[in-house]
Amino acid sequence: MAEDVTPAQFPIPQDEDDHSRRDVIMIAAGGFAAVGFGLGLWPLLDQMNPDQSALSFATTEVDLSHLEVGQAITVMWRGKPIFIRHRTEKEIEEGKAVPLDDLIDPIARNANLPEGAPATDANRAGKDREAWLVMIGICTHLGCIPKGQSPGDYKGNYGGWFCPCHGSQYDTAGRVRHGPAPQNMYIPPYAFLSDTKVKIG
């Protein structure tokens, strides 16, 4: 061999009949390395998911005894605002009067009902308790909290809620009536434990 060979030209073993065996070893080693890399990466990514202490905040109980007709409160569940409104007769009637065809989103978005249930007022309000509306108070556009909980708030043209960020409007059943929000505000899983107590989550 010439004295001036550069290392890059140093012959790499090239036994032709050995190639398939070499390939098996290379692919097996590479495969193991890839699996190992993936296993190592998984904890580094999964650690960002909600941890055990976050999951333990899964339910909230709310006392409604002080909530008069026409009033609303906001409570926290999993770090999200939950709107609870004790609706007036007028608000209920307005909610019932809307034909489904007028809605931007005709689906109830109620976690307590089968998926795809129509967005009638009855499907949005509490079961057998149509005066109560319990929903996640987050605009389905980009996550702001709509105005309309306090008596002095602007409630939009439909008497429900108005989102200050991009102008979405919701009616008295929390259904979107004016964009850009694409969906009705979501109803969380909840149940009335008594006439004055509701458990969310």
């Binding site: 904890p43 999964d46 650690q47 998911n49 941890d51 202490s53 976050a54």
Partner: peptide
Amino acid sequence: HYIPAADRAFDSVEHIMRDVNWGWLL
């Protein structure tokens, strides 16, 4: 996950060990 405060640092380490997904391994 760690909190560098004198009164919370130790607890946040225990939080990593017990609550955080794979925290013990990390």
